[in-house]
Amino acid sequence: MQTSSFASKLNMASPLSHTLLQSSSLVAQGAEARVYKSSLTIGGPPFLLKHRFNKQYRHPSLDASLTRSRVAGEARALLKCLRSGVNVPGVRFVDASEGILGIEWIDGLSVRRLLPGGTEDEEDLDGESIHDPQAKLSAHGISVGNLMSLIGIELAKMHAADIIHGDLTTSNMMLRHLTKFQVPVGSSDSLQLVLIDFGLSYHSALVEDKAVDLYVLERAFASTHPESEPLFASVLQAYADRLGKEWSGVKRRLDDVRLRGRKRSMVG
């Protein structure tokens, strides 16, 4: 009996990660990874498990090294953000050889779902209130303007630490409702804007990279949310206030990027 169960385990690629995924529930599926809700110990706190599955279209050894370095890169970016005071989920579990990254579970809604237009084409077809983002925002006790400020502040903190997110969208930001237990004593703010998905992030001090990061978000706003111009303007205002003297350089470059698009011209 002992030997047969051992043999069956040998046949599987990795028994541990395999059973870990089986015991988790699928939350979302993307092209690069699947996301699960899981927990490490039975009865322990939940965490989010991001599995970068095998890509059949890549050579196995290339796939293994890419997956490993992406998991490592994402974890490192999260640690750098935490050390720099940027609100991001903490890392809870890493199995780089299997492409598994476990991060802190964030309770809340994505900013996309809190803004007008963000809930279209999603599964939210039930009930009136869901279609009224204003109601959702006021349920959280926050105005659109304050939400935009929170975004600008978080982005400024991240760029001040020379971290470029690489995929800023309103889906990659969450408004977290801290429980009483998590709110520091004597503090009234129970809402926290948390940046997520650092899968495409990298380290750079270049004004160009920061400007492009903002430009990507501006386009994301424009394509997801109607009448987004005043919204993004207030994001930039908070970003500028927080970033300080570095802002003038970023602003100038952002204007350039708007004219030419995300890619730099390689001609001339």
Binding site: R83, G85, G90
Partner: peptide, 18 residues
């Protein structure tokens, strides 16, 4: 203390890829 705990837990979890 909350911040330190989160950073420390993160460091331990990602030790294998540091």
């Amino acid at each position: 203390h909350q911040i330190v705990d989160n950073i420390v837990v993160t460091s331990v979890a990602m030790k294998s890829v540091v």
